[in-house]
C-alpha cells in the first residue's frame, strides 16, 4: 500500500511539472495562435542559466536569473522573429519556431557537452517519511510549486484585465485592437510568461531523482506536448453559429 501511495504522489508530482510546460504552450497558443515548438529550448536555456550561476549567486538568485533568462529569451523570440515575420499563416510561424528551437538547442547542447549539471537546489536527495510512505522532498516541492503557479495563472486568466485582454486577442485580434488592446504587448507577455514557466519546469525536471540537467533534458519538454494538445491548446470546437 505504501508503495502505491508513493507512486501516486510521484506520478502526480511529475504530472504537475508537465502541466507547467503544457501551460506555456497553451498560453502562447491562446494569445497568438502559434504552436511554439521552441518551448523545449526555452526550458533548456532557463535550466542552463540556473545551473551555471548557482555556485556564485546561491540557488534562489540563480533560479530567478534562470527564470528571467528564459522569459527574456521567449520575449526575444517574439520581438526578433515572430513580430518581423510578416505572414498571417500561423502554421508558417509554427515552422519558424522549429527553426528557433534547432538554433537554440544546438548552441545549448554545445555548451553543456556531455556534462550533467546540478541546479543547486536546497532539497537535494532528502526524503520525507510519513506513516511509512517515503517521498522525496523535491517531488513535494514540485507539486506545491506547480499547483500554486497554475492556480494563480488560471485565476488571473479568468478575472484580471490581463486575462480578458489575452482571451479577447486570442479570439479576434483586430476587434481586440479596436477595443484598445495592445496586441504586441499581449503577445510579448505571453512569450515571456511561457518562458518563465518553462524555467521553473526545468528545475523540477532535473532535481532528484534525476541526476541533473543534461543535453537530453529538453526532450522531456516534448512529452508535455500531447498534454497541451489534449488539454486545451485547441479552441473550443463548438463555435456559436451566430458569432
Amino acid at each position: 500500500m505504501s508503495t502505491f501511495v508513493e507512486l501516486v504522489v510521484n506520478g502526480v508530482s511529475m504530472g504537475s511539472v508537465y502541466a507547467l510546460i503544457a501551460l506555456g504552450f497553451v498560453i502562447i497558443f491562446k494569445a497568438t495562435e502559434v504552436v511554439n515548438f521552441a518551448h523545449a529550448s526555452l526550458l533548456l536555456a532557463g535550466g542552463y542559466v540556473t545551473a551555471v550561476l548557482h555556485d556564485d549567486l546561491g540557488f534562489l538568485l540563480a533560479l530567478g536569473a534562470g527564470i528571467a533568462a528564459a522569459a527574456g529569451a521567449g520575449a526575444l523570440v517574439e520581438v526578433l522573429v515572430l513580430r518581423r515575420a510578416r505572414v498571417e499563416n500561423h502554421a508558417v510561424l509554427a515552422i519558424v519556431t522549429i527553426g528557433v528551437d534547432i538554433v537554440l538547442t544546438t548552441e545549448l547542447t554545445r555548451r553543456i557537452g556531455t556534462e550533467v549539471l546540478s541546479l543547486g537546489d536546497p532539497w537535494r536527495d532528502r526524503i520525507v517519511t510519513v506513516a511509512g510512505v517515503s517521498v522525496a522532498e523535491t517531488r513535494i516541492a514540485a507539486l506545491v510549486t506547480a499547483t500554486v503557479l497554475i492556480t494563480a495563472f488560471l485565476l488571473a486568466f479568468r478575472h484580471t484585465s490581463w486575462g480578458v485582454a489575452m482571451r479577447a486577442a486570442a479570439e479576434d485580434g483586430e476587434t481586440a485592437a479596436l477595443m484598445g488592446v495592445r496586441l504586441t504587448r499581449v503577445s510579448l507577455g505571453a512569450w515571456a510568461l511561457a518562458g518563465a514557466l518553462a524555467a521553473v519546469a526545468a528545475l523540477f525536471l532535473t532535481v532528484f531523482p534525476t541526476p541533473g540537467l543534461d543535453r537530453g533534458t529538453s526532450f522531456a519538454a516534448m512529452k508535455a506536448f500531447p498534454a497541451a494538445i489534449l488539454g486545451g491548446s485547441t479552441p473550443p470546437p463548438a463555435r456559436s453559429p451566430a458569432a
Binding site: S161, V164, A165, R167, E171, T175, G180, V181, A243
Partner: peptide, 17 residues
Amino acid sequence: RVFGRLTVEENLKAGAL
C-alpha cells in the same frame, strides 16, 4: 464582432481595456 467565447460581462470589460 463580439467575443463569442467570452461572457457578456467580459466583453464589456474588454471594451474598457
